[in-house]
Nucleic acid binder design. Structure first.
Length: 286
DNA sequence: CGTCTTTGACCCGCGC
DNA sequence: GCGCGGGTCAAAGACG
């Protein structure tokens, strides 16, 4: 699931509360839960003050580790649920979007009608169907080539740049002010492979100028992965390899940071966890 | 020195 | 055929 381009990156998944009685320095919040436990554990082993204390700390560590494992499981379940919901939303949007498209505008590019989508959407599937209408006019090769998806990225208030940090290398080759939006639109090509056909357009939303609308155009690979990342589908031919540890780490960090920054998500997570714990306590009692 | 960004000019499709 | 508008090119400058 690649939502790296529709999120911002400032959050830390840090578990400072878990670092019980440890003076281990914070690891810049980048290494994730399991790794952050290590320094604590090492401290316990190298500086045992007494057997009782060590035993208690190890017990605490085990308990925290178990909690960590449960939280991970819950997070996995939530991600799956989120993906399922997202799929349903995409279906719904593609159906509605089709209605909207059929009505107006014979213009070759009808992008403005999609600006009112919410800022978390990356509606690759619905957009890709937009070529159907034009299929009678376009040359065959273009029909095959076109696969469009959008990403909505909220930016900082003072950030005037048209850059979307999606983890990939783009070369800007043009900028244009369009008629329907006073904010300039920037055109990017993949700079990873010169022959790569994938392109990206970035423009601020006319409704909310703190939101960048990134439109990805390019041929999708046949593997329609279920990872929820439409962008990743589009860019496979252009991107650096996504199976490298660096890229995977980057994506994980992006995902974690965006999820934890979203107040709705954290609220839902807290509710889910507390609900789960409550449920668990009850089931243990009964 | 290589890479990236900027920006005016140019190309092309579409509507009138 | 002409004008408009979106998309692309490419020279020049900036930057590391």
């Amino acid at each position: 699931m690649d939502y790296s381009s529709c999120v911002d990156t400032s959050l830390d998944l840090n578990i400072s509360s878990i670092r019980v009685k440890s003076e281990a320095p914070v690891d810049a919040g980048r290494s994730g839960m399991a790794k952050e436990l290590k320094p604590t554990f090492m401290d316990f082993q190298t500086k045992p003050s007494s057997k009782e204390e060590t035993g208690a700390l190890v017990e605490e560590l085990n308990r925290v580790g178990e909690e960590n494992r449960k939280l991970t499981e819950m997070l996995t379940v939530m991600c799956e649920s989120y993906n399922a919901l997202r799929g349903q939303l995409m279906d719904y949007m593609s159906k509605n979007g089709e209605k909207d498209r059929l009505a107006p505008s014979k213009k070759r590019k009808s992008e403005s009608s999609h600006n009112n989508n919410n800022n978390i959407a990356m509606n690759g599937n619905s957009e890709s169907s937009s070529t159907d209408e034009e299929s009678s006019k376009k040359p065959r090769e273009e029909i095959i080539k076109d696969k469009i998806s959008k990403a909505y990225v909220r930016t900082e208030a003072g950030d005037t740049s048209l850059t979307v940090k999606d983890g990939y290398q783009w070369r800007k080759y043009g900028q244009k002010v369009t008629r329907d939006n006073p904010c300039p639109r920037a055109y990017f090509k993949c700079s990873f492979a010169p022959s790569c056909p994938v392109k990206k357009k970035v423009q601020r939303s006319i409704d909310d100028q703190s939101v960048l609308v990134a439109t990805y155009e390019g041929r999708a690979q046949s593997s329609s992965s279920v990872n929820g990342g439409n962008t990743s589908n589009d860019d496979k031919s252009s991107k650096p390899r996504t199976d490298t540890p660096e890229v995977q780490k980057f994506l994980v960090e992006q995902m974690a940071s965006s999820l934890t920054k979203d107040p709705n998500f954290t609220a839902a997570l807290v509710a889910a966890i507390s609900g789960r714990m409550f449920q668990q306590n009850n089931s243990e009692k009964w």
